[in-house]
Write a protein that binds this DNA or RNA. Sequence first.
DNA 1: TGAAATGTTGGGGCG
DNA 2: ACGCCCCAACATTTC
Length: 490
Amino acid sequence: MADPSATAPALVWFRNDLRVSDHPALDAAVAAKRPILPLYILEEDAPGDMGLGAASRWWLHHSLSALSADLKALGAPLYLTRGRAETLIPDIAKRLGAETIFWNRRYEPWAIETDRQIKATLKDAGHAVESFNGALLYEPWEVKTKQGGAYGVFTPFWKAECALGDPPYPSQAPKALPGADWGPLPPPEALEDWGLLPSAPDWAGGLRDAWTPGEAGARARLADFLDDGVLSYQEARDKPAMPGTSRLSPHLHHGEISARQIWHWSRERLRESGAAAYETGIWAFLREISWRDFNHNLLFHNPTMPHKNYQRKFDVFPWREDARSLKAWQRGLTGFPLVDAGMRELWQTGYMHNRVRMLVASFLVKDLLIDWREGEAWFRDTLVDADLANNVGNWQWAAGCGADAAPYFRIFNPMTQGERFDPEGAYVQAWVPELKDLPKKFIHAPWTADAATLAKAKVELGRTYPHPMVDHKQARQQALDAYSHVKGAA
DNA sequence: TGAAATGTTGGGGCG
DNA sequence: ACGCCCCAACATTTC
């Protein structure tokens, strides 16, 4: 009782791990048997941080609100503050007399640098720091080639992760948390004062309808997917009009559910069911979870990837500056229905089906010859699942300049993709309502319809819906010609 | 986790 | 019966 260190609190710094179960940092703090101060910092002006998009800010608000309620119920309310973590963390640790600061690791280059710096400051000041893997199946330094290097091709990476065996089994949420006394700290800030939600205009209606941020929402989403989605996953995930994907990406990004939980709970469901169709779906799904690890691995080992081509021979690619075309793409006014449907789904819900993400990326980079970094920036600003590692990895993949990338000459045809993956035109009808009365024969290429058909569907090209902004056949040839620069540079 | 161009094959119409 | 052409269907190659 006389030992003051017995009551020295533990600080748990929450970042992209907004949950209370399978949270290694929180578990370690509980094991230390100290009063616990859970902390979240809205990090402002961190050097190198590429910023939070408006959709992510909306999600973050609701996710923090859910985490706050969960922590409060357990007995240790979440302390909120904002500013620079480099000064706030050491200051809070000092005021509290904290013994140890716990956190789960993050992998963005700026965040790694911030955390490294904070760790050094804290240690100099006599605090202990413990960090954990809360986000990935395996850490980037745990998955290595036989030569000890990092993988640049996905399939061998996937095999290597499988060979490492099941990742650690996820832990349960603590039954109760001993809260620390906030007395020595300035009063916490109110989430409502952070201005994370849009006001005037409130454009978040589509987001509210589509999502339930928070740990409970994440679990419900996975349970739904394992109940019926996963059985038809392999075919249905390519059909944007169907609820065929897990839609877990925003929950995963904010850490409301962990990759290890997804791994183990999926495998458990597989063991219970035993159906062969289930086997296919589950493994196709877990393979996508491993893609997420792969992208984090790439970013960790290639910290310039957000700005630089992974394949440096692409540095000579003749991108076009074209603000008007970029804007037409962003607003979903390209005149290619499936592209526009995707861009509008993104704008209205903060999400886009994966098949359509590949198409709109191909269209921007190849039909419009606009730099993938423009597309990456737009997705980062508008996606609720905006995640630097995945976003950069996938854009470079689509642009052909990434690791294990799609070859540049793989150029998607918007009409063919529409006929193949949205054969009924239901996805286009949902997001491009001005075309909803067109017969499905023409819905992916309205300019091929005769005047009478267009009139009957109340479509007037150039007025109610744009003419196609490029001739795809011609654009494709231009893209191939531009690519010859890269080949010459290699 | 494409698409288009090019090559091959085989059935059917026809002289 | 046979060769020839046409062309769809499928396979392979190329970008």
